[in-house]
C-alpha cells in the first residue's frame, strides 16, 4: 500500500475520518464523566430518589390520624470504621404528617478521634420521596473522641401522600470514616500539642 497508489484525496479522507473519530472518542470520554451529574438528575427528578443529604421542611402536613405507618430503624458501620452504632428503638408506629423523634447511639471504640459521616437510605425505594428528615445527624460530620459516646437525633415526618400500598418504611444509616477530615483533625491536634514546632 502506499501513498502514491492511494490518491491524495484518499489520504485526506482518511485524515478527516481519523480526526472525526477522535473527536467522538473524546466526547464519549467526557460523557463518562457527564454520567455523574446525569445520574443524580435521573435519580432525583425521574425516579424521585434523593441523593443529596439535606433537610426537608416538615411544615404544612396535616396529620392523618386514621393511618398508621411502621418505621423500622437500622444502623450499620462500614468495616473501615471502628465505631459501634445502633438505633435506640427498633420500630416506631407513627401517623403520617406527625413530627417524630428517633435516636441513635454511636461510640468511638478506637484510640484516636475520628470524623464519621452517616449515609441514609430508605427502603422500599418507592417510599423514599415521602420520608422527610427535618433534622438529622447525617447532615453534618460527627467527631467522636476516643471512647466518646453520643446520642444523636433524627426528626422526621412521613408525608401523608405516601402510597397506600406502603405500610412499612425502613430507615437505614451506614457510618463511614471521613478519612480526609479525620487526618486533618489528627494534624490539628498534633499542632495543638506542640505549638512551637
Amino acid at each position: 500500500m502506499s501513498a502514491e497508489n492511494a490518491s491524495g484525496d484518499a489520504v485526506q479522507r482518511n485524515q478527516r475520518l481519523l480526526t472525526r473519530a477522535l473527536i467522538v472518542c473524546g466526547g464519549m470520554f467526557l460523557f463518562g464523566f457527564a454520567c455523574v451529574p446525569l445520574y443524580r438528575i435521573a435519580c432525583e427528578h425521574v425516579f424521585k430518589n434523593r441523593i443529596y443529604n439535606t433537610a426537608d421542611s416538615g411544615k404544612g402536613f396535616a396529620v392523618d390520624e386514621s393511618r398508621w405507618v411502621t418505621v423500622q430503624f437500622v444502623g450499620n458501620v462500614n468495616s473501615q470504621l471502628d465505631w459501634s452504632f445502633a438505633p435506640e428503638q427498633v420500630t416506631m408506629r407513627v401517623h403520617p404528617g406527625a413530627v417524630n423523634d428517633a435516636w441513635y447511639d454511636a461510640t468511638n471504640k478506637a484510640s484516636m478521634a475520628i470524623v464519621g459521616n452517616a449515609v441514609p437510605s430508605i427502603a422500599p425505594s418507592q417510599g423514599s420521596p415521602y420520608f422527610n428528615k427535618i433534622e438529622c445527624f447525617c447532615f453534618t460530620e460527627q467527631v467522636l473522641k476516643p471512647g466518646e459516646s453520643r446520642r444523636m437525633p433524627v426528626k422526621f415526618v412521613v408525608d401523608p401522600k405516601l402510597p397506600k400500598t406502603i405500610d412499612t418504611l425502613t430507615l437505614s444509616y451506614t457510618f463511614y470514616d471521613n478519612r480526609p477530615a479525620t487526618k486533618k483533625l489528627a494534624q490539628e491536634s498534633q499542632n495543638a500539642i506542640s505549638p512551637n514546632s
Binding site: 472518542c25 464519549m28 470520554f29 467526557l30 460523557f31 463518562g32 464523566f33 454520567c35
Partner: peptide, 14 residues
C-alpha cells in the same frame, strides 16, 4: 468500540 471504550476509560479513571 469507539463509542464505549472511552466510557470505560472514564470509569476506571474515576
Amino acid at each position: 468500540l469507539i463509542a464505549v471504550m472511552p466510557v470505560l476509560a472514564g470509569a476506571v479513571t474515576m
